[in-house]
């Protein structure tokens, strides 16, 4: 199985997401498993207003790249190939935006010994 990151671009902030969408986010790992894939990690981000950018010595307010699209979260999946990964990523509930599928070079979790 190959590993992919699914980047979620959602203009609606998490606190405004409808209950139904939140529920479907919660069910996502199970639905992906039903289709022969696996979620190996997931993370949700606070909105871009909370971000701090560091460029060399310079510290500024805001995300590194200012765009209309807001990176709201990322989850990592295992899939057979790109077509499978795309089919799994399509299960992500989105109100206003879309998702991006990117192959991973590697993925490592460092835990305390």
């Amino acid at each position: 199985m190959a590993q992919y990151a699914v980047l979620i671009f959602e203009r609606v902030p998490p606190e405004d997401l409808p209950e139904d969408v939140m529920r479907r986010h919660g069910e996502l790992p199970d639905r992906i498993a039903e289709q022969g894939g696996r979620v190996i990690a997931g993370l949700a981000l606070e909105p871009p207003e909370t971000a701090t950018a560091i460029r060399g010595e310079l510290l500024t307010d805001g995300p590194f790249i200012e765009t209309k699209e807001v990176l709201g979260g990322v989850f990592l999946i295992e899939a057979r190939d790109l077509d499978h990964a795309v089919a799994l990523a399509r299960l992500t509930p989105i109100v206003d935006g879309g998702v991006e599928v990117r192959p991973l070079v590697g993925f490592q979790v460092l835990e305390d010994g």
Partner: peptide
Amino acid sequence: AAARIPYAVPAPAE
């Protein structure tokens, strides 16, 4: 190669 674009005929739905 990197994204593993499959070398296959797509599933009937696609």
